[in-house]
Simulated assay, not measured.
Amino acid sequence: MDFLRKMLATLILCVMLLSLSVSAKPATFLQDFKVAWEDSHVKVVEGGAAIQLRLDQNSGCGFASKYKYMYGRVSMKIKLVPGDSAGTVTAFYMNSDADVTHNELDFEFLGNRSGQPYTVQTNVFAEGKGEREQRVNLWFDPSLAYHTYSILWNHHHIVFMVDEVPIRVYKNNEAKGIPYPKSTPMGVYSTLWEADNWATRGGLEKIDWSKAPFLAYYRDFDIEGCPVPGPMSCTSNPSNLWERSPTYTDLTPVQARAYRWVRMNHMVYDYCTDKPRYPVPPPECVAGFY
Rank of each mutant, 00 (worst) to 15 (best):
E104A: 06
I158D: 05
D163E: 08
V100A: 02
F107E: 13
T148C: 11
T90G: 02
F125A: 07
E133M: 06
E164P: 02
T119N: 01
E164L: 08
D141I: 01
E108H: 12
T90C: 01
Q134G: 03
A98W: 09
V159Y: 04
I167A: 12
F109Q: 09
E133D: 13
V162R: 01
M94P: 12
I151Q: 11
F92I: 03
V100F: 02
Q134Y: 01
Y149S: 02
T148R: 12
N95I: 00
M161Y: 10
V162G: 03
H155Y: 12
T119Y: 00
M94F: 04
Y146Q: 05
T101P: 00
P166W: 04
D141F: 11
V165K: 06
Y170H: 08
S114M: 04
S143G: 09
R132I: 10
I158P: 01
T90H: 15
T122S: 15
P117D: 14
E108F: 00
M94L: 15
R135A: 11
D97V: 03
N123M: 06
I151N: 09
V162M: 00
R135Q: 14
A145Y: 11
E131Y: 05
L105M: 07
I167S: 06
Q134R: 14
I167D: 13
S143W: 15
V100N: 12
W139H: 08
F140I: 00
N112H: 14
F107D: 05
V165I: 13
D99M: 10
S96I: 01
E108W: 03
S143K: 04
T119S: 06
A98K: 15
Y118C: 09
F109P: 03
I167K: 08
A126M: 10
D141L: 03
